[in-house]
Nucleic acid binder design. Structure first.
Lengths: 107, 107
DNA sequence: AGGACATATGTTTTTCCAGTCATATGATTT
DNA sequence: AAATCATATGACTGGAAAAACATATGTCCT
């Protein structure tokens, strides 16, 4: 049976804002305001999106003073990146002019 | 770099209608009207969704008389199912009461 | 050719969600 | 404890996407 959870799982990955956050965090953990600054997003927007990411275990949070440091949960994110690679490898080579969001090179 | 193509790729997987179609087709190829009947969807709705699925290479179509038979492209879909399994295995065991869309059992 | 059936496609309507704005909570410092 | 900083959360809204609706295309049969 398909779990209800698949829908939010993939919806998250379909959202550019969340993908950009994932991408940024792939370089290392950061607090909310830094993420907001680096991406040029509003603080509340970042918080809302981080909450969604955390609900799905894409990221984890820990306190540090007043700040909250968010980090990727690699165990979840890496398989996703691998999946993307497989798909792109097979069908979207030509689309990889890769205008748009910056991203790591293939593993 | 993240490719633009990721967005439609995941958006497709976030859509219940498309997931239901994928699920149904996982049992075998079918024509449009049978899909519509089995899922209780309008024909145009099914066609629109199949088109989107075909554009992303999730399904393939072939003519058979006036009908069009749609089938999963297993090379694309299987890795996705595997990813879902990994994720569910890790975090969503408890959510697998699995009300909602019927789905295959784990491989 | 014309009619019937199967599917695709174009257009309108409706639904839903991401972002914004406003406010609340929580932590630190003085 | 009040002020300030960092983040979270609740309410609202505009825009996008999906479904419904209407029509076109294509195929088979007589």
């Amino acid at each position: 049976m398909i779990c209800q959870s698949y829908e939010p799982f993939f919806k998250t990955l379909a959202d550019p804002t969340k993908l950009e956050i994932i991408n940024l965090l792939s370089k290392g953990p950061l607090c909310v305001s830094i993420i907001a600054m680096k991406l040029g997003f509003e603080q509340s927007r970042v918080s809302h999106n981080l909450k969604a990411l955390a609900d799905l275990h894409f990221v984890t949070a820990l306190r540090k003073g007043k700040e909250r440091i968010y980090a990727l949960d690699e165990k979840v994110v890496m398989p996703i990146l691998k999946l993307i690679d497989q798909y792109v490898e097979r069908y979207d080579k030509h689309m990889c002019k890769c205008k748009g969001i910056p991203w790591r090179r293939r593993a």
